[in-house]
Design a protein around this nucleic acid. Sequence first.
DNA 1: GATGAATGAGTGTTCATTCAT
DNA 2: AATGAATGAACACTCATTCAT
Lengths: 212, 212, 212, 212
Amino acid sequence: MVDEKQTKKKLIECAKAEFMEKGYMKASLRNICKAAGVTTGAMYFFFKDKEELFESVAGGPLLALENAIKSHFSMEDKLESKVESFSPRDIQDDYRAAQDILSVLYRYKDEFLLVMGRASGSKYENIVDRFVSYVYEHYLDIYCRMKGYATKSRLTNEDKFIVHWMSHDQIDIFIHLLTHCASEKEAAKQMKNMFNYMVGGWIATIRKDIIS
Amino acid sequence: MVDEKQTKKKLIECAKAEFMEKGYMKASLRNICKAAGVTTGAMYFFFKDKEELFESVAGGPLLALENAIKSHFSMEDKLESKVESFSPRDIQDDYRAAQDILSVLYRYKDEFLLVMGRASGSKYENIVDRFVSYVYEHYLDIYCRMKGYATKSRLTNEDKFIVHWMSHDQIDIFIHLLTHCASEKEAAKQMKNMFNYMVGGWIATIRKDIIS
Amino acid sequence: MVDEKQTKKKLIECAKAEFMEKGYMKASLRNICKAAGVTTGAMYFFFKDKEELFESVAGGPLLALENAIKSHFSMEDKLESKVESFSPRDIQDDYRAAQDILSVLYRYKDEFLLVMGRASGSKYENIVDRFVSYVYEHYLDIYCRMKGYATKSRLTNEDKFIVHWMSHDQIDIFIHLLTHCASEKEAAKQMKNMFNYMVGGWIATIRKDIIS
Amino acid sequence: MVDEKQTKKKLIECAKAEFMEKGYMKASLRNICKAAGVTTGAMYFFFKDKEELFESVAGGPLLALENAIKSHFSMEDKLESKVESFSPRDIQDDYRAAQDILSVLYRYKDEFLLVMGRASGSKYENIVDRFVSYVYEHYLDIYCRMKGYATKSRLTNEDKFIVHWMSHDQIDIFIHLLTHCASEKEAAKQMKNMFNYMVGGWIATIRKDIIS
DNA sequence: GATGAATGAGTGTTCATTCAT
DNA sequence: AATGAATGAACACTCATTCAT
């Protein structure tokens, strides 16, 4: 009971280490197995292939993150059910959501650093895009309200482009924090300034005080 | 004289194609040589190794970009030689600089897309950081002037962090444009909105209207 | 009592399917066990190894066939106890024997197709030869009688060779039918013509109307 | 010049030996390379994969055989351009054709034994069928003429079945000879009797003296 | 300048089989 | 009767690189 599934756990640990050191592609299953003290055959008892082993390392955290993002950011709420004009409530909501997400990110810091920077060659290669699109949905709605649009159909391609960029930027904030701050506490502190920057950007975007 | 160095040129072309299709790591020298119609031995006459071949594809454009960025963004000018307070001139300067850089990026679009997205495993893996640090130097100075600091020594870590983020964001704007706009013209158009967003962010950052 | 030995039965069924699809060699025990819903360990409780599992699929039918062939074709009857000259009775006997054999073949059609075409790598690889030799014994006797030889010692190597060929051909007729006719009924119909062909061949052989 | 391509030759030799001993599937490229005294990489310089190596062993002989069979057996000659009734000329022609084919078979005896008995898993797995169909085309024509049919459309499925069998049998004669006779000379001798048998079969088939 | 040949270490993956529980 | 875990050897194949000619 005690050492049950210990081999599998060991394998995942060693895989995590190897993947983080070498990246998905250059990681060697042989090395992982050697480090775990088992034969490659044993590994293939637990995992279908390299991909599945990688998934076992990074899949859980990604799911947790996806849920956190979805629950806060993606927009199933209909546009018409919202207040008629933009309110600072949106920003406050986002900020609190961001704190939750940050908490998830730091809970599995290693795994996220791995999956966001060293996953090329795996199915998570473009994982960031998935998260961007959740935020994009959400931001499109907010943008409409701020602009006073009754329906999304009034959005031009230019509108969509800048909203997409801002969504991308939001996600990038998280990655930047995870990459550059050792602790969640430190990250939370720096995030304040970054959000301030972002909100300033949003407001300028809505007002469209374009540089000539 | 006519077809001199033609082999080398062909090799670089084919390398570019293969690197773009598969990424640095998965690219196969065999494939490249086969496509170029020469043996691997011939390739090794011109290039020391895989890395050097990659450099021959991406090095030139990167140098051009580096020069463009350096000439506009990096700050050798001393702080004291500048006007005492922030002026919109900075932003105008930056915007014009950005237009130049955009022009370089689109001149070698393929190469930059390659080096910024598919270079993992090569020495250009973290090339973006280099460009960020050029901008960082420059932005640190601007930030000081805007804050009315006489010397950089007054900057806290928090200051540096947000400036570093804004530098990163500036570079990201370029990458985002290159990735999402087919033509330079289109990119130039979208860049206006992105700059507007960025300037809004800067102003909010200086004012520090922090969300509670 | 009811589901007793059900696992073993299931295993044999699934093994049959896998062996037929992939052939003995390429068949995977893992696949078979997965299909049967048990672990490989369970399989090894019932069967010593891959070979024995294959035997469990094909052994029974092969035994039935062996008996059918032996009872009709092999010659324990001594030569002297036979009528002095060739009679059409032999052919009639053979034809009836063939009908019996056909019946056995179609009773286990799958298994015979498997063992006669996809058994390479197993101990049944050359099973056909065994059946040929039973027929050969029998045909050697008939040939002697038709030639009017009192004893087998008068047979030359040339005699033996052609008799061996005709034995081989007899077996081949069965395989050809099994392979090309969907039903036993259809096979029985076509077999008539094939026997006619064979008898024609026999007669020509005895007469030795050699082409010049 | 002297030891040019010696490695490739050696590789083919060793491959031939290994394939003959173990069959296509069980043959190990590692063993072949070890026997040839080169690394597997060297082998892959000359041959794309296992299949191509096998082809290099057996492809030539098969082509020679195909040509021999085609030139003698396959029927592009139209039915109407032929004499109105069956003549022994057909048999004489076939016999001479068979002698040619036998000659090809014994020229590459090893290779044919390999490809006809141990090729399972390779693309030559069902090579025999291809040869059968060449002969089938030819025999269908002869059969029509012997039956006095003006056109093939009068042939029933039963006709086609027996002709297909006889085609198969013709090919089987060759294989049987190759398998059981050490020398071409010996094979040529035995073939006479086998042809005699076959012709007897043909005549009986045309006459349809069916056993009751 | 370029070829043809070869190396040697490496890849992920599959296999039949074993055995303590 | 059956599981879950593990072995160890084998597999075909790919790689960047080297070097004599």
